[in-house]
């Protein structure tokens, strides 16, 4: 099997998962493993979301076409860690109890925001195949612009979570990064061409 850029991305995307397994075997999940896994999976969701959002500006700035091909795999990696992140909440924190989960969604707005972002990601992941793209036609593009909404919701989710302690040392830089990546979308195409030309 030839080693394509796609397989390399998949392999890299699985590294954080492998790290958890190694840390688990060595008993290094810390005093509160539930908290460690929930936070770590959240961080990796953010990382892959940022990478996904980097691909389109990279394409427009460089003119390379490969980033557009990598975008889907990176988006699916983001979805994968988002699944684990949501699972940590539903399983370790809520014990899969429907009533408790609903109450939690109602009382903690940051949880509700995260869940809304996850719902959008689910819809995008389910329609990520070429087949679905063909079938949905124009609507596919509209749906997949949902990634911008996901990014905004995730920023709010993270900042709100940290607001209790007034601690934005990590949530702050992540939010700035995501907002800058979103900001690229607002730049007129002409600017992009000029930047590319100057480069």
């Amino acid at each position: 099997m030839p080693v394509t850029a796609g397989t390399v991305i998949v392999a890299l995307a699985l590294l954080p998962l492998a790290r958890w397994v190694v840390l688990g075997y060595t008993g290094a999940w810390g005093p509160n493993p539930a908290e460690f896994l929930a936070r770590s999976s959240g961080t990796w969701t953010l990382a892959f979301l940022a990478l996904t959002l980097t691909m389109s500006p990279l394409h427009r700035l460089s003119g390379w076409t490969q980033p557009i091909a990598w975008r889907r795999t990176l988006g699916l990696a983001c979805f994968f860690y988002a699944c684990l992140h949501a699972l940590c909440w539903a399983w370790f924190d809520q014990g899969f109890e429907a009533a408790t989960m609903l109450a939690d969604l109602a009382t903690r707005p940051f949880i509700a925001l995260g869940m809304l972002a996850f719902a959008i990601l689910c819809a995008m992941a389910l329609t990520s195949s070429r087949n679905a793209k063909r079938k949905l036609g124009k609507r596919w593009k509209t749906l997949h612009r949902g990634i911008y909404g996901v990014a905004l919701l995730v920023v709010l989710h993270y900042l709100w979570h940290k607001a209790g302690k007034n601690d934005f040392s990590e949530a702050g830089p992540w939010s700035v990064l995501l907002l800058v990546l979103l900001g690229f979308r607002l730049l007129p195409a002409a600017w992009m061409r000029r930047i590319r030309g100057a480069g």
Partner: peptide
């Protein structure tokens, strides 16, 4: 303490 953590981790995995 360390052993218990490893066991928990193994169990979870």
């Amino acid at each position: 303490a360390a052993r218990r953590r490893s066991l928990e981790a193994l169990g979870a995995l």
